[in-house]
Design a protein around this nucleic acid. Structure first.
Lengths: 335, 335
DNA sequence: ATGAAAGCGCTAACAA
DNA sequence: TTGTTAGCGCTTTCAT
């Protein structure tokens, strides 16, 4: 394996100069740089990240912690982040928790990350106080996507507003009996979205003078299957809703499925709206509040890299815009 | 940052012994091992992967190269692989090509991989001869998922058989005018599946004494949108097919969408079958030939790690079974 | 069972 | 602009 020494010998220079030339640092004559580059190419030289990391303390690697890559939403975030990282020459170390509590424990507690990565990207997970403590002890930039944590660098949408937009759309159509499909609003595995979206739903209904009914708020676990189960429940109510606002498109898709099962026509008998603009949303003709998923991944990666290079960097809370996308699953209630 | 030296000093031993004790190597007294462990814990010692990598030449990291994480199929493979890697203490470096040719070029050509990972997992990509050449020069274990490449370690399903099963299902139902939705069967971006599935389709039709019609074979690009476009085309034919076999569930979903658009009823006027058993398949009530996606990721990771540890390891071609899953999108043709 | 010592391949501070 | 010289924090012979 050819090392920097081989290149140095080849161009008859010190390894220091070769290192500088290869990394594009200042203080190297143009001629030298070219000779070094040419030699490196000719000899097939590839730098050793381990050696560079050991000597410099920088790994040019970013850890991305994701709840579950198989969910389109998280995968899209990862993809956005990966693009930016790659462009800037950083590698992406993927930690997929996939619902395994021990995996989460290991990543955070046993400081797997120490000395291994330059920065950390946390996708749609709300770290516990203990985990936050460990993260800050890491002494490395951390950006969190989808959480509202003052003092930390975060990227998210305005969940309250997004939910309000969705609910208002239903209200504007004339619906008064509107159910909510959400998820757990507390617990370690929670993130900001569920509670903020629930609040947005409630506020809007109250603003419209509609009384809240506890039995119209169901837990759909943010999955298709959970949404289907919860919607089945809702549609079986004595006073069934004429519309369902699901806090995620996957739950909304589950609701559509439940409606079909029960012979409830959409949008004639039931309107359904989600949040996300999932890649499949268009194929279900689902009305939704779109959020820039891919872009959030990009912004988060950009932010965390900025923290690595800018000296006067301080954590920012970035909020990206959402947009109502009206498709075919919402309509006026039958009179 | 506490290093191995600090621990050595603390237990009044050499760093060599501490290193051995920490890694569970033989030749360390039980008492010493316990003292070392305790001290390491107390001092909050975390080993440096860079240093270990530099000294040992092993990074305990595996590169996973994936065409596009946002596609459920690939994400599920990644998740399967990640589980196994994590269990065994390996990290996963994700390279997402996402259709960016320069990304692919960079990963393979500029040997981003050299000195960085112990092994490589390639998901559903058929490396070009040039890329194969580079991979073998890596001198590291490589496992390829979804390709049929004798001499290399591969994990896949029998694509020919899967396609035959799907086609035969339609034939058995009485269909004679069966269209095929596939993808490019050549080019660098191709993998084994498209051509093998097309062949399985053709063989089965011929076996059933049904004449092939070129206009019934369409390119759906293995995406929902592509499938929809291609199916629209097929359904507009003068002699339109009574059934469509899509080589992937995503294309099948596109076909369902096209049928709905055109007022073609499924399964009354048109039967649709896919391959994969995509997570959404059940919500579309899609008949399909299921393949063990997650499991293929696990097997591939297990295989590549075995190569790392077993001395007498040689590349194996693993083929995992598929299974017909009949749901509601296939039925007898109307007479 | 343990230790001494020589690197692994690079970066960075200091000199020249 | 370039070179010299120490390491970075481990692992791994080779001794003992």
């Amino acid at each position: 394996m050819t090392s920097i020494k081989d290149v140095a010998r080849d161009v008859e220079m010190s390894t220091a100069t070769v290192s500088r030339a290869l990394r594009g640092l200042a203080g190297v004559s143009e001629e030298t740089r070219e000779r070094v580059m040419e030699s490196a190419r000719r000899l097939g030289y590839v730098p050793s990240p381990s050696a560079a990391g050991l000597a410099s303390g920088q790994t040019r690697t970013v850890a991305v912690i994701v709840p579950r890559v198989t969910q389109w939403f998280f995968a899209a975030l990862v993809q956005g982040a990966e693009e930016v990282l790659r462009e800037r020459g950083y590698d992406l170390l993927l930690y997929n928790l996939a619902g395994d509590p021990s995996a989460r424990h290991r990543v955070f507690e046993t400081s797997l990350l120490t000395k291994r990565v330059d920065a950390v990207l946390i996708l749609s997970l709300k770290p516990s106080p203990d985990e936050l403590e460990r993260l800050s002890r890491l002494g490395r930039p951390v950006t969190i996507i989808g959480a509202d944590m003052p003092g930390w660098a975060t990227v998210r949408i305005d969940d309250h507003e997004a939910a309000a937009t969705a609910t208002q759309h239903l209200v504007d159509l004339g619906h008064r009996c509107i159910a909510y499909l959400g998820g757990a609003t507390e617990g370690v595995l929670d993130f900001t979205a569920p509670s903020a979206r629930l609040a947005g739903y409630r506020c809007t209904l109250e603003g419209a003078g509609v009384a809240l009914r506890a039995e119209l708020e169901e837990d759909g676990e943010f999955t298709v299957a959970g949404g289907q189960r919860a919607a089945r429940q809702l549609l079986g109510l004595e006073v069934a809703p004429t519309a369902i606002f699901a806090a995620s498109d996957e739950m909304a898709i589950g609701a559509l499925r439940a409606a079909r099962e029960l012979g409830v026509r959409v949008p004639e008998d039931l309107s359904v709206i989600g949040i996300d603009d999932h890649e499949m949303a268009t194929y279900f003709d689902l009305t939704t509040v779109a959020q820039p998923v891919h872009e959030q991944g990009r912004v988060a990666a950009t932010q965390v890299l900025a923290a690595l290079t800018d000296d006067d960097w301080k954590p920012e809370q970035v909020i990206l815009p959402t947009q109502l996308v009206v498709r075919g699953t919402t309509a006026q209630p039958r009179t």
